[in-house]
Design a protein around this nucleic acid. Structure first.
Lengths: 212, 212
DNA sequence: CGTTCTTTTGAACCGTGGTTCACTTCTTGC
DNA sequence: GCAAGAAGTGAACCACGGTTCAAAAGAACG
């Protein structure tokens, strides 16, 4: 008996693992998942390719973890903004649209990676739960709004999907990797347009009195 | 001088080229682009792998051509339905939603391939123009509807993107490769839900008198 | 220090599917 | 038939990045 893993050792291991995750995340944020090659991740940590494999089961798993942590962070922000009690359903939709859109427009590369970039099936599975989370959040808000008579009667699941699709598609032109960065004014206009679109779709009466 | 390409020869060559395209298209329709390997295409024509390369510059180009022809066909159907004079803008939106959705739901694999399946950048470029075509069609309808006072004032470009996004996202759950085929009733309900959603978003007054 | 176990290293390996090309097999016109 | 060139063949080739693993370096403890 001679060697024994110690507290420091374990701490170092955790730090190293975390370092790989951070490195991968940074690479994804800068140039998407395809830029996060095992070699690039290792290099960024001044480590060898092989060492990555003593902390992760493989590249896919590592990237799935990166995806999950980044996606969870985004979801949490939206959930927080949306769960504010004392907010009407339409205001919660407003929060959802605003937070989601402005974060996407400010972290364009990461947003594109999370929403659209083709990756391995393992990561794709994570994306499925990520998208579902948003749809679930939207669905709940719509149910609440329906119950409170704020929205026009409709299938909340379908409506939520459609809302998320509308948001994504309205944004995709602005966050596509080769597209130029939109100015703050344009961003504000886009977000406002999306919000109005969604409000109308859900049947929220126009703020300044409807054309009634 | 001895050999000379003749009319028959040229006809045969055209037929052969066409055969490769049809084979590839059938493979895509059955199992997506990833199933359309050069080997599979050649096999389906009882030809050799190499012969494919005497008719096409490479697999990407071949698939791009398949994409373009399939996509053009879809677009043409929509454009036809939508260009009917004497139709109100809202009716044209209705046609757009119906044709697009029902074709997607009936040719699910192909729809998924055209709309979502990750393929090479060359094909992705085709997809960009395909999506843009739909957005252009929608934008024109919305402009007309705006001019005729049928829709609530809004940015037609953004609205069209959002509409297409709403349709796609509402459908994607039903056309995903591993999802079960929805019954005709479900399909009808989905299409109807999408239509209502888009109508509300555009500001079309409800058919049976608004809540005014 | 020496022993023992852990961690790191990075060049070699591998799987996949598109692509090539020397060779064979037609096709045409004399 | 036969020469000349087109078309077809498919095994070998290649590119690419993830993955492995035997050897080297490092860490803990007596």
């Amino acid at each position: 008996m001679a060697y024994r893993p110690t507290a420091l050792t374990r701490k170092n291991a955790e730090d190293k693992r975390d370092g790989f995750l951070r490195a991968a995340r940074a690479l994804v944020a800068a140039d998407g998942f395809k830029a996060a090659t095992v070699a690039a991740i290792a290099a960024r940590c001044q480590a060898s390719v092989g060492s990555v494999y003593s902390y992760f089961d493989g590249r896919d798993r590592l990237l799935a973890e990166v995806f999950r942590s980044a996606a969870t962070h985004e979801i949490d922000l939206v959930r927080l903004a949306v769960s504010d009690a004392g907010l009407r359903a339409s205001e919660r939709v407003d929060e959802l649209v605003r937070i989601f859109s402005s974060r996407a427009l400010h972290g364009r590369r990461m947003a594109w990676a999370l929403l659209f970039e083709p990756v391995s099936p393992v990561v794709e599975a994570e994306r499925l739960v990520y998208r579902r989370s948003y749809t679930d959040i939207g669905e709940q808000i719509i149910r609440d709004g329906l119950a409170g008579g704020e929205f026009v009667p409709q299938d909340p699941r379908l409506a939520s999907s459609a809302v998320m699709g509308a948001i994504s598609e309205a944004l995709v032109g602005w966050i596509r990797p080769d597209s130029p960065e939109p100015s703050e004014e344009v961003q504000a206009a886009v977000i406002d347009g999306i919000r109005s679109f969604c409000f109308r779709a859900l049947g929220v009466p126009a703020t300044a009195g409807s054309a009634c």
